[in-house]
Design a protein around this nucleic acid. Structure first.
Length: 288
DNA sequence: GACCAGGCCGAGC
DNA sequence: GCTCGGCATGGT
């Protein structure tokens, strides 16, 4: 399978594939033995840690594409260094050098996080897989490209419901139509407030989903998506319960333009804690 | 059989 | 402006 093997690239950077690709940012990567397989654009990509554990061997994508997707860039390193000095977040940052923010394709991220509303990660993954299998272009290895907005805008609502979208089916369909028509632009480079306003024109996209799209696809590094998990994590940092609006202000004050990456560390830490009873406290949080 | 999941929408104040 | 109920679905 020459196409899958093409573009072999070795990355030398701390890159924890499990926490990054399976940590609530992206939903279409699959672990195959010791490797992770997914789709970037129209190409199947395979990622495998090197035997020394210090790098990643990749197939199917260019170095440029991978460095963009995993944000292997100076600005990210600087962000990490600043967060490492945060008294609460520092130990978590130091303990997880390979946890990264992703720069995903905007339309797929929009569809994915619209699907994520009031849903859980396992179901989101299943739904998006079925959407890709049903409407996406087949690729090698039983993978599929994610269907474009025009295609999903033409899908029948009952078919979208049948893959598990439930009441989100008409939202996804109408959102796809608006994006396909160009009525709503999914473009990088706009300030967070502008991106949020534009994204929330889409049905099924509210403040939280808009922040996820802005952070994980549109380069809004100050976006701070607040879900139930993050609210719990921020409460730990702040030492008291906060309303979502207060939590947003807290994050803005404390982490500013680094809030998005801070959020990913918080999400990782608090979810890890939830799956390991007795360790829910953030690494480095004060004893109370 | 509740309750929860990376919430949003529309109705009623 | 705000709060609140409803909502598809599948797993604990």
């Amino acid at each position: 399978m020459g196409r899958l093997l093409a573009g072999s690239v070795r990355l030398h950077a701390p890159l924890d594939l499990a926490s990054t690709l399976h940590g609530g940012q992206a939903f279409r990567w699959r672990r195959e033995g010791g490797a992770w397989q997914g789709v970037l654009g129209a190409r199947v990509v395979e990622l495998r840690p090197t035997s020394d554990g210090l790098g990643i061997d990749t197939k199917g994508a260019t170095r440029r594409a991978l460095e963009s997707y995993f944000r292997l860039e100076p600005a990210d390193a600087a962000r990490r260094a600043r967060l490492a000095k945060d008294p609460y977040l520092g130990p978590t940052v130091a303990a997880n050098p390979g946890l990264r923010l992703l720069r995903q394709e905007p339309w797929e991220a929009t569809a994915a996080f619209l699907t994520s509303a009031n849903n859980n990660v396992l179901r989101i993954e299943g739904i998006l897989q079925r959407v890709a299998e049903r409407w996406g272009t087949p690729l090698e290895g039983a993978h599929h490209a994610f269907p474009d907005a025009e295609t999903l805008g033409r899908a029948r609502e009952q078919d979208l419901r049948a893959v598990g979208l439930g009441y989100r089916a008409p939202f996804l369909r109408e959102t796809a139509r608006l994006v396909a028509k160009g009525d709503v632009a999914l473009e990088r480079g706009a300030p967070l407030e502008d991106a949020r306003e534009e994204l929330q024109k889409l049905p099924g996209v509210g403040p939280k989903v808009a922040d996820c799209i802005a952070l994980f696809a549109l380069d809004c590094d100050d976006a701070f998506p607040i879900d139930r998990w993050i609210l719990r994590a921020v409460a730990q940092v702040a030492g008291r319960e906060l309303a979502p609006r207060e939590a947003a202000a807290f994050a803005r004050d404390r982490w500013g333009g680094d809030a998005g990456l801070a959020q990913q560390f918080l999400f990782h830490a608090v979810r890890l804690g939830a799956s390991a009873p007795g360790t829910s406290r953030l690494v480095g949080a004060p004893q109370r």
